[in-house]
Amino acid sequence: MAVKNPLRQFVDKVNQYPEWLSRFLMTSVFRHKVKLAGTAKVEILRTDGKSVTFLQKNRRKVQNHIGTVHAAAMALLAESASGFIVGINLPGDKLPLIKTMNLNYVKRCQGDITVEASLSEEQIALMQQEPKGEVNVKVTITDGVGIVPLEAEMIWAWVPKH
């Protein structure tokens, strides 16, 4: 039997609260654990356990020289969302590790950026059963006007913690 994952238990519990409180609690814990996400003020909008949606507001501190969300901030958002969904679906005795990030910036973005990262049922089952392995997390990035400014391939590995 898989070791219980405390992060997944937390997410499942706060998802029972009103949406505004659930968002606040998940975002606060994530920002505390992932310091750079806290600095950039990344927000978790929602998760159902199979997918998660993150938001990066187009704030001055994350802008580039032309006033849009910086390329590095978009990469942080994609890495954070994909890592979160992998992290909550692994057994508690496994450690998620980013293996590959392929980023292709295709359009100039406008406004805030949202990222949805998701896993299939098959990927989740594999993560629960195998002591180590890797998954290609589906990531969709959109800006404030619905344009896809970044195509990303995020491959996450997992290994035993000890």
Rank of each mutant, 00 (worst) to 15 (best):
V52F: 06
R8P: 07
V86H: 09
L95R: 14
E134L: 02
D12I: 05
A2R: 06
F24C: 11
A40S: 11
I66N: 04
V145M: 08
L95W: 12
Q9Y: 06
K33Q: 15
S82V: 07
N104V: 12
T47Q: 09
H70I: 09
G49L: 06
A2V: 10
Q123L: 04
G67D: 01
A157E: 11
I141C: 04
N89I: 02
F24R: 15
T142Y: 00
E121Y: 09
G67C: 02
L21N: 12
K57R: 15
P131M: 14
N104K: 14
M127W: 02
H65T: 09
N58A: 13
R59C: 11
P160A: 12
K107V: 07
F54A: 11
T142S: 10
A2M: 10
G92C: 07
V159F: 11
I141Y: 05
A125R: 15
Q123H: 12
D112E: 11
K61G: 06
P18E: 13
S118V: 03
P96M: 07
I66V: 15
L55E: 05
L119M: 03
S80A: 15
V29W: 14
S82Q: 10
A72I: 05
G133E: 03
L97G: 07
T142H: 06
K50Q: 11
V145Q: 11
S51H: 00
F54M: 14
I141S: 00
S120G: 03
M26H: 10
M127R: 01
K138E: 15
P149K: 01
G92I: 05
C109Q: 09
I141F: 02
P160I: 10
L36D: 08
M101L: 15
V69K: 05
I113D: 01
T142M: 03
D112R: 00
I124P: 13
N136T: 14
E121S: 10
N104Y: 05
G144H: 01
S82G: 11
K94S: 01
L126H: 13
P6D: 06
L150S: 08
F10P: 03
V69C: 05
R60V: 00
M154Y: 02
V69Y: 08
P160D: 11
F84T: 03
V34T: 07
K138T: 07
K33L: 14
L25P: 10
S51G: 09
M26P: 06
V137P: 02
V14S: 10
C109D: 06
A78C: 06
I113L: 03
Q128P: 04
N136G: 11
R31E: 09
L150H: 02
L55Y: 03
N5H: 10
K33T: 04
K132N: 11
K161E: 09
G146Y: 02
K138W: 07
Q63K: 13
A152Y: 01
A78I: 00
A152R: 04
V34M: 11
L7H: 07
N58C: 13
G133Q: 00
N104M: 10
D12A: 12
E116M: 13
I85G: 04
A72S: 15
Q110D: 00
I155L: 03
L45K: 14
R8F: 06
P91S: 08
M74K: 05
R60Y: 09
L55Q: 12
R31C: 06
T68W: 04
I98Q: 05
I155Q: 07
G92A: 03
